[in-house]
Design a protein around this nucleic acid. Sequence first.
DNA 1: CCCCGCATGTAATAGGTTACATGATTGG
DNA 2: CCAATCATGTAACCTATTACATGCGGGG
Lengths: 179, 179
Amino acid sequence: MSRRTTTRYAVLGMLTHGPMTGYRLREEIRASVGHFWQESFGQLYPTLRDLEQEGLVARVGGGADRGEPVELTPAGREALRAWLAQEARSLSPERHELLLQLFFGRHADPGVIAAHLDRHRERLLQARERYRQIEQFVRAETSPDQPYWLATVRHGVLLVEAGLAWNAETAARLAEETT
Amino acid sequence: MSRRTTTRYAVLGMLTHGPMTGYRLREEIRASVGHFWQESFGQLYPTLRDLEQEGLVARVGGGADRGEPVELTPAGREALRAWLAQEARSLSPERHELLLQLFFGRHADPGVIAAHLDRHRERLLQARERYRQIEQFVRAETSPDQPYWLATVRHGVLLVEAGLAWNAETAARLAEETT
DNA sequence: CCCCGCATGTAATAGGTTACATGATTGG
DNA sequence: CCAATCATGTAACCTATTACATGCGGGG
């Protein structure tokens, strides 16, 4: 059953970087778009099988040997183009558990909300560090993909920085409350 | 089967605002935390049944009449406190389809990425408008919950503004590319 | 009387993760 | 030879949405 899930296009997209095995595909996804897109094997392999049946990807050697990489077919490249032209459905149901805790924060024991904010800040700082490193790396890149890659990294940087600003502002406001 | 899902605590939390029916509960969730948390009936009613069996909520009238609101029991209030003290697991698998399209944007037909960014910008502007109105509303609020509510709204405001900054920066960079 | 809002619930479906099972190849 | 990495796949499960089914009560 092929369900026109976005996994299909994540796969087709990654294959523009060259032929890969399913295993390698997941590594590449993790290493490049991993910050905003993940795939599990349980999702990848069935998708790969479907894509092959539909003729959007093909085994490189022609045979179906184990460990044989797959490559994009012209039809696959076309399918990718078609998806790129479609509006992204915001599939993410937008569930932010920390914000939910904050919303009901008045009923928490003293200090626990401040602790949550602290931990959240730590994670954001680490994320900012990661993004900054990736940004440096991408800026040095000469690939024609570079401006597109940079765009996704910059999204990470800017959103994390906004998160930090919010974190500081919120921690200050709630600290003021308890005085 | 009670699966310690966050839905439970969204329900318990909302009931701190007073007794409600399942139907009303969903309305309230949509109207207050709807920007970062949603619940469907198919999730709500089974959860409500579980919570009642576990004694965390109880029908107000004692009887099980249709349309009878439920209220927090002391045990429910305690369960809420316990959850508030726990670290939020970032359940969101972080999947951002627009960024995925952008990452592979080089393979798109000319103009389609710019169009995506434009539409994205429109949605962000609308969201900012909504958040700003809510912020005004919440700032005027005198409830002891006010600082907590304000925190969640401010998160929306700051993140959307960062999104807009990213959008402008990215649109400019990609426009430059094509010249 | 009919429609709408309030109210409750279930079944089907979707979309995905995790755990498990298996085996080849390679380097220490 | 043994561990780690590469590689593929399936089964079980989880979480949640959507669609569907039902029914009451009030207002136009």
